[in-house]
């Protein structure tokens, strides 16, 4: 039994199977955003790791084949960003200022509150990239030497919290413009924010993709540099 559970193909099949099941489940439940397939798949993988007792390292022997593809997938993100570039030309100042605002506020504020409230070092560092799209947040975590799994956890916590409260928040602060709301959703809540923005309108969706990709690019360059400078 132990041989079967720790065989690399087993982890690979469990992960792909869990993902396929989670996608099916979300469709079945009318694409509810709280039933995020990635979150459910991670939950199922965690259950598999602890129930089987094989430990994370053994699990990764198989799952590494999937993990390896993150690098190429990150490079591929250049294509959607390129397609949105025309929009930047018209709104260059707004776009650049907003993305720097998102980068600074999300990173600094999360780190500041976590450090003031006495969070563990790993939490303080991996929470900084919470608004960055997952693939790049993992890259940042690996670069600054903190737990990439915690980074993924915070990215999804942020995406879920943000999309749950965004409609309410934007109503309170009276911001309803498609472009501003879309860009902010993408820059703050990455992929989950993009899905939310497309529910509002096509324009909001397009600007959310721009917000997400630029936020990833800018944070991927600035965050490790700044963090390693102060560490």
């Amino acid at each position: 039994m132990e041989y079967i559970l720790s065989y690399p193909l087993t982890s690979l099949i469990v992960t792909l199977g869990a993902y396929s099941f989670s996608v099916w489940l979300q469709k079945k439940a009318g694409s509810h955003s709280l039933l995020n397939p990635v979150v459910i798949t991670i939950g199922l993988a965690v259950i598999f790791i602890s129930m089987s007792g094989i430990g994370y390292e053994t699990y990764m022997e198989g799952a590494n084949f999937i993990h390896f593809l993150l690098g190429p997938a990150t490079v591929a993100l250049a294509v959607p960003l390129y397609k949105q570039l025309q929009m930047i030309k018209k709104q260059a100042i707004a776009v650049i200022t907003s993305v720097l605002t998102a980068c600074f506020i999300s990173g600094f504020l999360a780190w500041f509150i976590a450090s003031q409230m006495g969070a563990a070092q790993d939490i303080q560092l991996s929470i900084i990239s919470k608004s960055v799209t997952t693939a790049i947040a993992i890259g940042i975590a690996e670069k600054i030497g903190t737990a990439s799994s915690l980074a993924v956890f915070f990215v999804f916590t942020t995406g879920i919290l943000g999309t749950l409260f965004s409609s309410f928040i934007f109503k309170i602060v009276k911001i309803d413009e498609d472009k501003a709301v879309g860009f902010s959703l993408g820059a703050t809540c990455h992929g989950l924010g993009v899905a939310k923005a497309f529910q509002k309108s096509e324009t909001a969706g397009a600007f959310s993709v721009l917000g997400m990709s630029l936020m990833g690019l800018v944070s991927g360059i600035l965050m490790p540099l700044v963090i390693l400078f102060f560490l």
Binding site: T15, A18, M60, I66, S149, F153
Partner: peptide, 19 residues
């Protein structure tokens, strides 16, 4: 590639079992 990018987050995310 990007359509299935979510799947690629799972191995790293599953490391949360350590935390």
């Amino acid at each position: 590639f990007i359509k299935y990018i979510g799947l690629l987050f799972v191995p790293a995310g599953a490391g949360v079992s350590l935390y």
